[in-house]
């Protein structure tokens, strides 16, 4: 554990709390892509199967359980509790274009041909692109509630902080995880456009609006 990874994880936690807070206070999941949230459940469940057979630390265990539980809770909020506020007609990204290639990549690039290892790889690849339906939705509507942009910023900060973590681990432990690093760089790259608008507009007190 190092400071970058720790704050990355905290940022990830924060993003989930911000999202749940947004849904509860506005009593609406408007502007949130259900597809992205489903992909996150798939990511956490396929990655954290090792909960069943390997122990890393209490920290690791609690975080994994929290990520699985909170992502399922968000699906419940969107599909049951605040269902009328969820508008599938603007959530039109084709997720099969993400899941299919990630499954193929996982079969090619993994750390061992065990079901759990392939699923772990799959979850890493899928996480890197899981935000795309959400960003696509944002692109389509051209604007977002400020709180939604804070959610996205915290989520983007999480993987961004993992990059200095990997650099740190390379020098301090000689540890390199090429699959996580490659996917992590892609994932962070997807946020660059968003970050640009977030820093130049939202943090200057303006509304998140994309140029027409």
């Amino acid at each position: 554990m190092n400071i970058f990874r720790f704050f990355g994880d905290i940022s990830h936690l924060a993003s989930i709390f911000i999202l749940i807070h947004k849904i509860h206070t506005s009593r609406s999941c408007r502007g949130i892509s259900f597809k992205t949230q489903v992909l996150y459940v798939a990511v956490f469940v396929t990655r954290y199967l090792d909960l069943l057979y390997s122990w890393v630390s209490l920290y690791n265990f609690v975080m994994k359980v929290f990520f699985i539980a909170s992502s399922c809770y968000i699906l419940y909020l969107m599909k049951v509790r605040f269902r009328p506020t969820n508008d599938p007609s603007i959530d039109t990204f084709r997720v099969e274009y993400l899941v299919g290639p990630c499954a193929v990549l996982a079969l090619i690039f993994n750390y061992g041909y065990a079901v759990t290892e392939v699923l772990w790889s799959f979850s890493i690849f899928l996480e890197s692109v899981a935000i795309l339906p959400q960003l696509f939705m944002l692109q389509r509507t051209g604007e977002a509630e400020t709180i939604t942009t804070h959610y996205l910023a915290a989520l983007g900060a999480y993987r961004t902080l993992y990059i200095p973590n990997w650099i740190y681990r390379y020098f301090s432990e000689g540890y390199v995880d090429p699959i996580a690093v490659t996917a992590g760089l892609v994932q962070t790259g997807l946020y660059l456009d968003f970050f640009y608008v977030y820093f130049t507009k939202v943090l200057q007190g303006q509304k998140f609006e994309l140029p027409a």
Binding site: D9, D50, Y111, V176, I179, A180
Partner: peptide, 10 residues
Amino acid sequence: RPSESGHDEL
């Protein structure tokens, strides 16, 4: 190799 010690990152 990362998998030998398990995947310790979240």
